Amino acid sequence: MKHTAYIKTVLGPIEISEVDGFITELFFVKDPYEIPGEQKTPLLEKAEKQIKEYLDGTSRGFDLPLAAKGTEFQKAVWETLCKIPYGETRSYKQVAELIGRPDASRAVGMANSKNPILILMPCHRVVGLDGKLTGYAAGLGIKEQLLELEMTYAGR
């Protein structure tokens, strides 16, 4: 059964979902005036606590069970995202090389665009080869804020 909760954050409202004990979705709500009732579970409460700690700089990682639906290639990309250290970035090319597909930079970008669990599977840490910010499902402004937050707290 799917349960959904909504988290108010400094970056805007987030919707997070759990199915059978795994986080399956996390995204920013575009229209905060249309937030339906929520169905918090212990896992969603734990996720909320960890996300708030991450956003206020008191935590750098997450200890949550994730289950994203996608192709094997997408899952390989998403698993690699989770290995990019807090406060660091990798290029699409570097991620492609890390999964053993050095010519698949564009496919890595497409997999990032399909990431159903933003922040927890940190696709915001992937940038263009020249270091410039490129696409993010929640918008480049949010991506920039997440990277700035991590850079600010990484040295502590």
Rank of each mutant, 00 (worst) to 15 (best):
K2D: 10
K2L: 14
T4V: 13
T4W: 00
T4G: 03
Y6L: 07
Y6K: 08
Y6A: 03
Y6Q: 05
I7R: 01
K8I: 14
V10P: 13
V10F: 05
V10Q: 14
L11C: 09
L11H: 11
P13R: 14
I14C: 07
I14V: 15
I16N: 02
I16S: 00
V19M: 15
D20N: 12
T24Q: 08
T24D: 01
E25P: 04
E25V: 12
F27N: 11
K30N: 12
K30D: 12
K30Y: 08
K30H: 13
D31Y: 09
D31K: 13
Y33E: 11
Y33N: 13
E34I: 08
E34D: 09
E34N: 13
G37Q: 06
Q39F: 07
L43S: 05
K46S: 05
A47K: 07
K49H: 14
Q50Y: 06
I51D: 06
K52L: 14
K52R: 10
Y54V: 08
Y54H: 06
Y54C: 02
L55V: 10
D56H: 09
D56T: 13
G57W: 14
T58L: 08
R60T: 12
G61I: 01
F62H: 09
D63A: 10
L66G: 07
A67N: 15
A67H: 15
A68R: 13
A68Q: 06
G70S: 01
G70Q: 03
T71C: 06
E72Q: 10
F73L: 02
F73I: 06
Q74H: 03
A76M: 10
E79N: 11
T80W: 05
L81M: 13
C82P: 03
C82M: 15
K83P: 03
Y86H: 05
G87I: 09
G87L: 06
T89C: 02
T89W: 11
R90P: 00
S91P: 02
S91Y: 00
S91N: 05
K93C: 09
K93L: 13
A96E: 00
E97L: 04
P102D: 01
P102S: 01
P102K: 03
D103M: 14
D103L: 14
S105Q: 11
R106I: 12
R106H: 14
V108F: 01
G109K: 04
M110H: 15
A111M: 01
N112L: 14
K114C: 09
K114D: 08
N115C: 12
P116F: 03
P116N: 04
P116Q: 06
L118H: 04
L118G: 11
L118T: 04
L120M: 15
M121N: 15
M121P: 13
P122K: 11
P122L: 10
C123L: 00
C123T: 06
H124I: 03
H124A: 04
R125K: 10
V126C: 05
V126D: 01
V127D: 07
G128A: 09
L129I: 14
D130H: 05
D130W: 01
L133Y: 12
T134L: 12
G135R: 07
G135P: 00
G135M: 08
A137Q: 12
A138S: 11
A138C: 02
G139V: 02
L140Q: 11
I142K: 00
K143C: 07
K143H: 09
K143G: 10
E144Y: 13
E144V: 10
L146G: 04
L146A: 02
E148W: 11
E148L: 15
E150H: 09
M151W: 10
Y153L: 03
Y153A: 00
A154E: 07
A154I: 08
